[in-house]
Amino acid sequence: MTMLQGMHLTPIGDGIILLEPTDGLDPGEPDAYLVPLAGTLQQMRARRLIYDLKNVPVIDTLYYAWLTNLASICRISGIDMVLVNMRPATAYALALTMEDNPPFACALDVNRARNLP
C-alpha cells in the first residue's frame, strides 16, 4: 500500500489501483493532490483507478469538482477511473444536481469494477 496525503493507494493486480480517500483529503485543494497522485499512478503502471466511496456519505459540488478533476488527469494519463460503493442516498442527491453525464464510470463494488471491460 502507498500512502499519499489524504489517501491510500493499493495495487490489486492487473494494473488496477484502489484509491481510498481518508479524512485528511481536502477536495477544495485539488492541486495539492493531483500532481503527486498522477506521478504515483504512472510509477505503478496503473491502467484503472478504482475510487472507493465507502466512507464518503455526501458528494457536494466541491467534491464532485474534485472527482471531475481527477477523472480528467486519469484520462490524459490513459487510466480508466471507476467509482465504487456509492450509497443510494448519495447517488440520488448527486443525480438531482448533475447537468451532464459524469466523466467517470461507476460500479457497485470493487469486484465489479475490476471486471469492467
Partner: peptide, 12 residues
C-alpha cells in the same frame, strides 16, 4: 434522465 443517471452512479 435523473433516474437513468442515478442508476448509472450506482454502477448499473
Amino acid at each position: 434522465i435523473q433516474m437513468i443517471r442515478a442508476v448509472g452512479l450506482m454502477g448499473a
